[in-house]
Design a protein around this nucleic acid. Sequence first.
DNA 1: TCGATTTGGTAAAACGTTACACCAAATCAA
DNA 2: TTGATTTGGTGTAACGTTTTACCAAATCGA
Lengths: 350, 350
Amino acid sequence: MSNKVTITDVARKAGVSLSTVSNLLNGRSKRMRPSTEQRILEAIEELGYTPNQAARQLKTGQSAIIGLIVPSVANPFYGIFARHVESVALKLGYQVLLGNSDRDPAREIKYAEELWGYGVRGLIFGSSLFNVSHFDNLISRGLHVVAFERPTQEADGTRVDSVGIDNHLAARLATKHLLSLGHKRIGFLSGPIQTVSRLDRLSGYQSALRDAGIQSDPDLIWDVSPSENSYGDADAVDLGRQGTQELLSRLDPPTAIFAINDMFAFGAYAGAKDMGLQIPSDLSIVGVDDITLTEIVRPSLTTVRQPIEKIATMAVNRLVARLEGKFDEQQDHQILPPQLIVRSSTTRPK
Amino acid sequence: MSNKVTITDVARKAGVSLSTVSNLLNGRSKRMRPSTEQRILEAIEELGYTPNQAARQLKTGQSAIIGLIVPSVANPFYGIFARHVESVALKLGYQVLLGNSDRDPAREIKYAEELWGYGVRGLIFGSSLFNVSHFDNLISRGLHVVAFERPTQEADGTRVDSVGIDNHLAARLATKHLLSLGHKRIGFLSGPIQTVSRLDRLSGYQSALRDAGIQSDPDLIWDVSPSENSYGDADAVDLGRQGTQELLSRLDPPTAIFAINDMFAFGAYAGAKDMGLQIPSDLSIVGVDDITLTEIVRPSLTTVRQPIEKIATMAVNRLVARLEGKFDEQQDHQILPPQLIVRSSTTRPK
DNA sequence: TCGATTTGGTAAAACGTTACACCAAATCAA
DNA sequence: TTGATTTGGTGTAACGTTTTACCAAATCGA
């Protein structure tokens, strides 16, 4: 078995030109005798020929790879998301090149440019920073972008699609659930807040409080500055723990906490235990995402579900439709409803 | 800004031939005037040139991509591992193409062949199936493989390197810890057992029992057949829960459980609670991996730590050394010691 | 029968880069 | 001064594929 089997080898074996082999491989076999087609297919199988993607890419200018940039697959939410993206993409004939950015714009653009060099012309992107102008150059060259963690912003121009949940509503659902249980002192626990999705969640939290005639109290809001370009995606549990300890050490501590995502909520579990409190009897906790383990931890976590698989599926389908020229409409913006999942981490305050 | 900037554009702008630009880019600039080098670097920056990787790959026969095949990044162990692999690989100038295989050999070989088509010549591989002969064809063509979840097997031939922990010892540590607490009825909880690492762990469990003069009881061992080529990597928590319920429903149930990994252990937590038992007072539980959350769940999980970051680093370094011809020795096999981490999920039996 | 159309192919240029062979001019050493 | 060596480049073939233009033979229709 030779190291290299090229289209020329196949052609020679089948007794046709290499153009004929290429025609068969690329859907131009209408003008081909069945016997010719058969000979070629047999030669392909016998020789174990697979096309050299680099040669394809060089000629066509693009490759069957899409890029996926997430903050960190070490966070289960993104690991699960990446898994679904890959699954859908493979069914559509695309490989996925994954990048972990920790929401650092410099890393994001470096990835995007490297991916461009590999012929990647479509990118699924989830960091929810405000400004994606670092992608403008690549977008103007033809890069297609689908953002999944934040709705498209005005500043994005007309060339970024998005799929995601209504983060404002997610936070409203969580906060209203706590209010309906009778909580008046509701903490908001977050990592660095300067991302679109997190600010939308803060806004939803505050709007639900306002609706209930409660003034938002800064002492009930915990977030930290980004440290070394880290938004807390890789150390969410530790941050959640620390933030909960600090909230509970304040003068008029919360009786409930809305955590920015499930990993922060798990950290809140630990923080509360560290402070000698029981969940939910002393402190109710709500998260966002509904990742694996929310049902298993004790008490099981009340959370707001993101339909991860559906978001991934929609993002991939949108991107591939753009790449294959099957979707030429203006910027597309799909918002899915979040869903409150009440489990055992919330109860009435004492 | 034009869509395409090629080496020819850079050469024209710098007033040199394209060979000169290539020489600079590829470390052959000894014979170059500093002023020529400067002109070229300025042209590269002004034009925003990045090399077309497909063209490079076509000419060189390889690309700066390594493949990583794991069962599923939806499982945090592999998500964390993938994250570390990427981090190290990027520092060495390589991108990572990730594939999720669910340990299905057909999927594994399909991935490997597709990766080959993208110029991937090195693969980090973690599924711990016995037989990797499906890679033989690619290996004989020059593919380098580093396995990270199982030691190299006889049948692998001489061309598969490996990095990982001593799984036999990991299980011995866990089981001896439980024995030292006084447990005599120790369950073994696993998904489908026909992988090298899982059988090694079973063997370690059984050997520790033998050392303590205890006969291994089949009624204390729970595993299931692979279903639809699934080894339980994506649904470990559910399987762990189910398996624990079944073990606890038997005639002479265990007072302690050694779970094949932490996700199964978390499932065991749920299963025990389902059966009305308290952990650890009614049932002690030990896992393997020490993933994120083992310290946070309550009770915090006693587990056997895999040094994930170190394994990832060693695997990448070995693979890159092979790819760059800096390591020509025979098959390399690095075993790292596991470490027992005692937390709160284990105590003496009632 | 003859011109138009269809069938079933083929040849060749191009994609962007690498690396080898080569060259002219300058420098060095005898 | 002459031959050898070094410097600082350059030209070009090749990588494997795609796609376009083209062609000869067969078929069709008047």
